[in-house]
Amino acid sequence: MLEKLIDDFKLQPPHAVLLALEPLRAISDYVAGIVGPAEALPRGDGHPVIVFPGLALSGAATADLRVRLQQLGYELYDWEQGVNNWPDADFDEWLQRLGAHLQRIHARHGRSVSLIGWSLGGIYARELAKKYPKLVRQVITLATPFTDTGDSTHAGWILTLLNGAAYAVDEALLKRLSVDPPVPSASIYSQTDGVVAWQGCQGKETRCHRNIEVNRVSHMGMVHHPDVLRVVADLLVEPC
C-alpha cells in the first residue's frame, strides 16, 4: 500500500497534448512579448545580469530577454558557451568554467551579479550561486525542474539524441540540485508547461526562496511572455 501511495505522488511528465501544443503556444507567447507589458516596468540600478539558455539552445534564444532587460538599465551578458547540450565534462569542472565567466563579470563591475536561467540553464545558475555565493546577487529560474525526478520531463530524449547515448542523472546529483542556493532565489513556473512537470520547478518557500506562478505560459515561451518579463523586472529591482 505504501509503495502504491509513493508511486501516485511521483512527478509525471506534462500531458502529451500540452507537449504537442508547445510550438503554437510559444509563437503566441512570442507575439505577446512583442506587444509588451501593459504598464511601464521598473528601471534597474545597472547591476550585471547573466542569462543562461535552455537545453539545445544558445544565447540567440534569450537575446530578446537580454535586450529588454538592457533597456531597463541593466548590464546584460550571454553565458558565452554556445549551444547548451549539458556539460561536456565533469559537472564540477563545467561549473568552474562557468564560474570563471562569472568572476570576470564581477571583477569588471565590482558588483554582485544576478543570474537568470531558463530550464536547464537555471540548474547552472543555481549551482553557480552555491559555489560562488559572494559573487551572486540573486538567482531567477524560468521553468527549471530542480526538484524533479529524472523521468518527469520530456527533455530526456532530447539529451539522449544530442549526446548519442542513454541519458541518466544519478540520485546523488538529483538530490544536490534540489538544495536551494544561499542567496535570494525565485522560481517562475507555469502549470501549462508542456515540457517539464511544473511541480518539479518548485522549492520550499523560505525567507530566501520564492515560487512564482505565471498563468498560461508555455515552456518555450517563458523568455518572451510579458507576464514573465514583468515578474523578472520586479525581482531584479528588489534590494538584495
Rank of each mutant, 00 (worst) to 15 (best):
L95S: 08
Q103V: 07
T62F: 03
S114M: 10
G121Y: 11
N85V: 12
W118Y: 13
E80C: 00
N85L: 14
S114C: 09
S119L: 07
S114W: 09
L65P: 01
G122N: 10
I105P: 01
P133W: 15
L128P: 04
A63G: 01
D78S: 05
E75G: 00
L102M: 09
L69K: 07
V67H: 15
Y124A: 15
D64F: 08
G110E: 09
W94M: 08
W118E: 02
G73R: 09
V83H: 13
L98C: 13
G117K: 01
F91N: 10
L128F: 06
L98R: 09
R111C: 00
E127Y: 05
Q103T: 09
V113A: 05
P133N: 11
L95G: 05
L69R: 06
E93Y: 06
G82W: 14
H109T: 11
A129F: 05
E127V: 01
W86P: 00
Y74W: 15
Y132C: 03
V83A: 12
D90A: 14
A107S: 10
D92M: 04
A129L: 10
A100H: 12
W79T: 02
P87Y: 13
E93W: 05
A89T: 13
G73I: 10
H106G: 03
K130Q: 12
E127H: 04
S58C: 03
N85I: 12
L102Q: 08
K130W: 04
G122S: 07
W79A: 11
G99P: 01
D90E: 14
L98K: 05
E75V: 03
R126N: 01
L120E: 04
Q96Y: 07
L120H: 09
E127M: 09
I105E: 03
D88A: 13
E93L: 11
S119M: 08
R97A: 13
D88Y: 11
K130I: 01
G121H: 08
R126V: 00
R126W: 02
L128H: 10
A89H: 10
G110P: 03
W118L: 04
W79Y: 12
V113F: 03
Q103E: 13
G59T: 02
A60E: 11
S58Y: 10
R104E: 14
L120F: 14
R68T: 05
P87C: 01
H106I: 01
K130S: 06
L69F: 08
G82F: 09
L120Y: 12
E80P: 00
Q96A: 14
